[in-house]
Design a protein around this nucleic acid. Structure first.
Lengths: 249, 249
DNA sequence: CGCAGTTTTGATTTCTGTCAACGTCTGTGG
DNA sequence: CCACAGACGTTGACAGAAATCAAAACTGCG
């Protein structure tokens, strides 16, 4: 489904948008607070119900999308039906950084929960960038963040056990949500199904179930009603094995 | 070992440099052909013997390095001694794109064969970029290339068997070398040890040996004297499973 | 209520890792 | 020229982690 078929063009005030709290994607802040700029004039919202494609790898999309609300996944699909999730997109994340520079996202993006995105015309975003040192430094920050995430993913998939991968995934999500002020008393919204965890960690849903059940039995965490609570963060981090700490948000 | 301890500052004409043939890293071309620019004045060469660190994740490096000759690996090392190679660096590649924007490479870079790099002061490279549309588009190309490689790596590590991973690795190297004109009649220089293949594919050296031996037995390829020849590319690509083809060089 | 999508559980198989031994190659120094 | 050490590659027996297969319970939802 092409992005333009998804309600793109419908203006919205995005009242539930958490942008103001984000430190992760400051480019978005940068772009959206430019008063009266071209970007402001043309921005609109894209709403996608849960479990739907936001864009396909081969789509031709002339917009840059920023996730305002809900969770999504960026992934690669294989011929045999296997899928590998490359990253979970949280509020404030850019949806495929490729769209900053080209029309093809080169990855699938799928909504997990109901999702809304801000839509900018690429020309306008790039126009903002030209000659702006601040914007270039924001871009480089996004680049370096993605690089770090990709490196961690490769280490997890290549060198860690199932338990370690799952613990790392959950803690990574907690940490990213914490930066956005979306953690309340150790509890987060958790729209993921076990098959999402499986697709992200290179495991099967059956094995994910076994590991998570064991984590619960050991009192490390609890998952109820689409909420996740980490009960014993220390133990979970011990399982996850210390990765070098995140250099920046 | 800090880059500056490695012979940095020694000027060199880099006669064996294959830059002229590169299409992959055109930023480098772009930077180095600016006649009489500040970059030209201050560029120098870094030579590192094989099997040595080029830079460490926590080093503070104020230069941008481009690999001119030889092979290197960028990798993460774990506390238990495991290693995950994130990518092999071939002539023309930038050594840690992070150094374009910051002092910390955030990855280990290790030479595989004897290696020589061009050294640019970061300030000068960034100076070239300011206000140059061409340079920004070269940067975005590097970004998108790295993104594509990272996605392929994650798919390999998360969703493919040992045979598939190894076939994919070898074919990926062949393809990248082909773009640089470094393949002659299906034969390439192949300085990798089996433990490099293991570190790149998330396998053990023992298992790599078994798979490679089997590939040879089946007449798919041949490795002699640090040269690799692919004898049955069709079969090897069938094993590797079609990935979406590379969009650009 | 029924149905499709989940999650759980257990039995079994497959793949890859681990361990260990041995052979080869390479470079070094006497 | 030879002896040697260390890195590298191969091979086989075995162990362990996760996949596969299958069935049953649970969850939401129309």
């Amino acid at each position: 489904m092409h992005a333009a078929e998804n309600g793109l063009g419908r203006p919205s005030s995005c009242s539930q948008c958490v942008m103001a709290k984000l430190s992760a994607c400051t480019l978005h802040r940068f772009a959206s607070r430019e008063p009266g700029s071209a970007v402001d004039e043309r921005q609109s919202m894209l709403h996608v119900p849960r479990r739907r494609l936001v864009c396909r790898a081969q789509d031709s999309v002339e917009s840059v999308l920023f996730l305002c609300d809900g969770w999504a996944a960026s992934l690669r699909a294989l011929a045999n039906g296997d899928r590998q999730i490359l990253s979970f997109l949280l509020p404030g994340d850019i949806v495929s950084s490729a769209l900053l520079f080209q029309s093809k996202p080169n990855i699938l993006v799928e909504s997990i929960s109901d999702v809304s995105c801000r839509v900018f015309a690429r020309q306008d975003v790039l126009g903002l960038l030209t000659g702006s040192d601040e914007a270039i430094s924001q871009l480089s920050r996004i680049w370096m963040d993605e690089r770090e995430q990709a490196a961690r993913l490769a280490v997890d998939l290549g060198r860690r056990t199932a338990e370690e991968r799952i613990a790392n995934l959950l803690l990574g999500l907690m940490d990213r949500l914490a930066l956005r002020g979306l953690v309340r008393e150790g509890v987060i919204d958790f729209p993921l199904r076990q098959h999402h965890v499986a697709d992200a960690t290179g495991l099967t849903p059956v094995h994910v179930s076994k590991v998570l059940t064991d984590f619960k039995r050991r009192g490390l965490l609890q998952i109820n009603d689409r909420f996740l609570q980490v009960l014993d963060e220390t133990a979970l981090r011990r399982i996850a094995q210390a990765q070098p700490p995140v250099p920046a948000g």
